[in-house]
Design a protein around this nucleic acid. Structure first.
Length: 437
RNA sequence: GCGGUCAUAGCUCAGUUGGUUAGAGCACAAGAUUGUGAUUCUUGGGGUCGCGGGUUCGAGUCCCGUUGACCGCCCCA
């Protein structure tokens, strides 16, 4: 069609797509509520500086940013984390701990649209502030699993890869890497799955060759599949810090195991997550078939609230996107068709009967029943067909014959039985019938 | 930001080496049917063939540009 199109990477939500999106939002909200998280929202437009402070100046290239009429540098939010850190930071002293918050919101990123990645998308964000211990990770990972399994997805559909940036840095330092070198190694690790040995090219350019024996030790960390593997690889190193980290790992894994969620979780140090503000556990959810982008990602970011001007407040959080989730649900046939069927369809004999029908229709609607009727005069046959197609459970028949007798005919659309009720009994009869089903 | 593929009705697509007023199925609407249900039959609306230019007597078809979608790279908070 000629004329206007939506902007690249932006979607129109026709009623069918809208109902699919609502289903996703409903499931997320229900899961969060079951876990005792409280919903919040925030402005779509934020100061550009908020994102530059968190992610560096380069981030601007990926943002919908502009100068507003008051000369302010602003950006459409590309994520929720800086905003929620600002909100929590500003009132941290007054908020009861632990602070467990979630949001469902739309975000905007100026990137090339691809499958599973658009310029406008929705995310569920859940964060816990004020809890430094691994209990927060247990809570969030369990919530993440609930947010996905509530759709009907199982351990055969998705899983969560659990990793730890803190342990990576500990291990690399113990191997003799400097801090800068360690960061370079982590970039290589992030790419290793996709690129193999080539992933180290960038590191070699910056820091020089990695000794073969050293590289083997780095790659050994990637082979870790369990807590036992982890303890074995780290056995040569002893420190209080390491003992604490391993104790946290035991708590997280045994906690999730007690929740019977172990089958959803894989120890996998291949996950390091892009930007470097994560300070401990990091995790990502993927579909098992592995042909989609990450479904969700998160981790601990203990320094961020302070960096954005708030108090020193530990934090963990994750986000799930609606685009990849929607694709996965579609693949698995888990997108229910929502028919917004009326409760009642009013069949109206003609213009003479219309006003009598209107009186009841309005009263029924005011009581909360969903009632439909034809706008134009239609043959009875057509109206019954329309009633059947609408999915209504009941038809109310306002014909000349009925109204002359002071009654309305009620037809049960499922078994096609009919009976007559007095005009002033319509509301009561409908209530009896529909509340019994 | 860089490469590749594609674009015909609301949807899925057909359209011959360039040749008359561009087609089908589905969907939608009306009628057959002025008091009772998904079938059937008939009919109808809907296209500047993504957009703009060029070649040609003639372009949905060939060429260039552009916009968008999809795939890959960069990035992925």
């Amino acid at each position: 069609m000629a004329g206007f199109q939506s902007l690249p990477g932006f979607r129109d939500f026709y009623p069918e797509e809208f109902s699919r999106r609502q289903h996703i939002f409903r499931v997320w909200r229900q899961a969060a509520s079951a876990f005792g998280f409280q919903e919040y929202d925030a402005p779509v437009l934020e100061p550009l500086e908020l994102y530059k402070t968190k992610s560096g100046d380069e981030i601007e290239a990926q943002l919908f940013s502009f100068t507003d009429k008051g000369g302010r540098e602003v950006a459409l939010r590309p994520e929720m984390t800086p905003t929620v850190c600002r909100m929590v930071g500003a009132k941290a002293g007054a908020l009861k701990r632990p602070i467990k918050w979630f949001s469902v919101a739309e975000f905007y990123r100026y990137e090339r649209a691809q499958k599973g990645r658009l310029r406008a998308f929705n995310q569920f964000n859940a964060d816990i502030f004020g809890e430094a211990g691994p209990e927060a990770e247990i809570e969030l990972i369990a919530l993440l699993i609930q947010c996905l399994s509530s759709f009907g997805l199982t351990k055969d559909d998705f899983y969560i890869r659990l990793s730890d940036r803190d342990l990576w840095f500990f291990y690399l330092e113990a191997l003799g890497f400097t801090d800068a070198q360690s960061r370079g190694i982590l970039v290589a690790i992030d790419r290793f799955e996709k690129m193999g040995e080539d992933a180290f090219k960038g590191y070699v350019e910056m820091h020089g060759e990695v000794a073969a024996e050293m590289k083997d030790k780095v790659l050994a960390f990637l082979q870790i599949k369990s807590l036992a593997d982890l303890e074995a690889v780290l056995a040569p190193f002893k420190s209080d810090k390491l003992a604490t980290r391993l104790s946290d790992w035991r708590k997280v894994l045994s906690g999730l195991s007690a929740m019977k969620l172990s089958e959803f979780v894989a120890v996998d140090f291949g996950v390091v997550r892009g930007l470097a503000y994560y300070t401990g556990f990091v995790f990502e959810a993927f579909d098992r078939k592995g042909d989609l982008r990450a479904l969700a990602g998160g981790g601990r970011y203990n320094d961020l609230v302070k960096k954005l001007g708030g108090p020193d407040l530990p934090a963990v959080g994750f986000a799930i996107g609606d685009v990849t989730t929607g694709l996965l649900l579609e693949q698995r046939g888990l997108t229910p068709h929502f028919v917004t069927a009326p409760d009642i369809y009013a069949v109206i004999g003609g213009e003479a009967e219309r006003n009598a029908a209107f009186a009841d229709i309005q009263a029924l609607r005011a009581s909360g029943w969903r009632v439909e009727y034809p706008f134009k005069e239609l043959a009875f046959g057509k109206q019954f067909k329309a009633a059947a197609e609408s999915g209504a459970k009941l038809a109310l028949i306002y014909g000349g014959d009925e109204l002359a007798k002071g009654v309305v005919k009620i037809r049960d659309m499922t078994d096609r039985s009919e009976r007559e009720v007095a005009r002033d009994q319509v509301l009561a009869s409908v209530r009896d019938f529909l509340s019994g089903h």
